[in-house]
Design a protein around this nucleic acid. Structure first.
Lengths: 346, 346
DNA sequence: TTGTACGCGTTATCAA
DNA sequence: TTGATAACGCGTACAA
């Protein structure tokens, strides 16, 4: 087992100084052709590679991006990571991943672990618990220590940093527009409690679409699901809630759900009640994942373009990292959503 | 914007030496109570944290695990990552992720990037291209440089390292057993070409189950899908292939698919042909993902326990890292699969 | 009780 | 053309 070889070892073997080796390897004209060749041959033989850690220490740059997301077993976040990784690697950066698991404490701890020199900057999406507690000190501290942050999807306006979001309101408005245009008269929405910003915004889009069509919103048609219900164990009770919604309002002929799982479950309930999709009732979800594509019937969704968000976020962060002295100007990039029409709508 | 504070800065401010500060912060009894308090107060005020990079360089340990997977937008791999991250964090390690995107070159490059000091060891699952080319030099080189590797799921016997796998053969044998026990007389299998080891093993399990039931395998019932078909664009032709399979063999009353997507698509085809699931035909897939759970009908699957694999892999790797001098003994851990019965079987 | 010196691996600057 | 030295930030053995 040969340990990784260092400049010093090469220098010893070849009876030259460390700096000579270093220069020779970088092909410096200071060094004679002879020694250069000798050193390079030797280095190649022993497969020399400069030690990243030493370089990081010296350059005060790690060429590594820290990513903190609430959850990775989630199609959207996985796609974002892929986008980040793609751009990061292309631009010579590594990606280190931390999962907050929707917990405030884990988010803070993870950020602290990484902020102590391991990375050059953060890309993150805020955990639900943090959003609920509205405690953002860890973001501000990180930023004030000179470490740039790019937030995506779940962001907060008060924090000054680059952001990549989609226009949740517009996206859901378009979706509901579609349902109304398709002739739906009683469109229900299945959404989250309001503290989840994207849930709130998507609800607003729903209301706006109704307004545009001069329809008065009916609170009976608005189901605000308690978030806990997303955890696997509570899916059954979610199903019951939706069933009650449908039974209370037999006229529902269109459903907009703020994520794909809600939509899929709602379709399941509808089918159980012998409703025909899309003839009796139409469905649109949000976030384009595997479920939407492969469900039967396949689900029309508002696509969030996770990978693109990741790519953009990585570009923003690396740009900031590589133009240190630029004026402090923060950008909020809005990624366009689009409606992917499938079988669940006419 | 205050830069991160260092020992040296604290020492300067307080007019003591760097080592005094260092010792004071670690509460060394060498240092007087007085200075200790003074230093600690100051450090706390400025939120001092030791620089990880410097520690890594000094200790020759990064406390970071490198994970190379073929794809992250994939429920199974995402679950593995979550498992790895869980254990790693608990044991004080970070996780850095590289995606090979099923490409040999990217796998090699990614490993090289990380092997130069950025991490202490690898957890990885081999890309399809690498498996096809059977070029494993990068693994051997890494290992011979003293950097431990733990492979999971897609592994190769020739490489000496810890491994975490499932018993693919047994898992699929159990699945097919179930179909046969349920009365299926003509069980088809939808699998991959043989170079994908897990596909090959699962096919073997299928054959073995038949043998146990004294049934002779019918090559007409074995569909070996070209792997390219998994890429999103080719799903249509996969659908056609399956349709032809069903039309060629009208008697098929059971289908075992080596992954959940194949199974879901096969169910779709069956439904289109007006076959009733599970009365006319039963289905079992492999890998328990979201699709299986939320499909209609929900799909009976062999669960792979991705998270558990990740946890085990992380434990194996960290154990190896923290017991350097132990004898070189490699372990292959087999994670039990189990059949999750849902609506697609009787 | 405190401080000096060294080493981790690298590069840049300056001296020989 | 080559080599010595300092510096990145830290911890520790040893000297004062």
């Amino acid at each position: 087992m040969k340990r990784k070889i260092t400049l010093k070892q090469i220098a010893n073997e070849l009876d030259v100084s460390i700096s000579t080796v270093s220069k020779a390897l970088r092909n410096s004209i200071e060094i004679s052709e002879d020694t250069r060749e000798k050193v390079q041959a030797f280095a190649k033989l022993y497969n020399y590679r400069p030690n990243n850690i030493a370089l990081s220490l010296k350059n005060r740059k790690t060429k590594t991006i820290g990513v903190i997301i609430p959850e990775i077993v989630h199609h959207f976040f996985a796609k974002v990571i892929r986008g980040i990784e793609l751009v990061a690697n292309k631009r010579g950066y590594n990606v280190i991943v931390g999962l907050s698991n929707e917990s405030f404490d884990k988010e803070v701890i993870n950020m602290q672990m990484l902020a102590n020199g391991s990375i050059d900057g953060f890309i993150l999406s805020i955990s639900k618990e943090t959003l609920q507690q509205q405690d953002y000190h860890h973001f501000n501290e990180t930023i004030s220590q000179g470490m740039p942050i790019v937030m995506f999807d779940r962001v907060i306006n008060e924090i000054h940093c680059d952001k990549v979001i989609i226009d949740d309101m517009k996206g859901s408005k378009n979706a509901v527009d579609k349902l109304l245009k398709n002739g739906c008269k009683h469109v229900a929405i299945i959404t989250t409690k309001d503290y989840v910003s994207v849930g709130r915004l998507r609800t607003q889009g729903y209301l706006q679409a109704l307004e545009d069509y001069k329809m008065t919103p009916d609170s009976n048609l608005i189901l605000k699901v308690d978030d806990e219900l997303l955890s696997e164990d509570h899916l059954d009770s979610l199903e019951k809630e939706i069933e009650e919604l449908f039974k209370r309002n037999k006229k529902i002929d269109g459903v907009f759900a703020v994520n794909e799982l809600y939509a899929i479950i709602a379709m399941k309930v509808a089918r159980k009640m012998n409703l025909n999709i899309p003839d009796d009732i139409q469905f649109i979800g949000f976030t384009d994942g595997v479920l939407s594509k492969h469900a039967t019937p396949s689900l029309t969704t508002v696509s969030q373009h996770g990978q693109e968000m990741g790519e953009k976020a990585a570009d923003l962060l690396i740009n900031k990292l590589e133009n240190e002295d630029e004026e402090e100007q923060y950008e909020t990039v809005v990624i366009e959503t689009n409606l992917i029409e499938r079988e669940s709508t006419k």
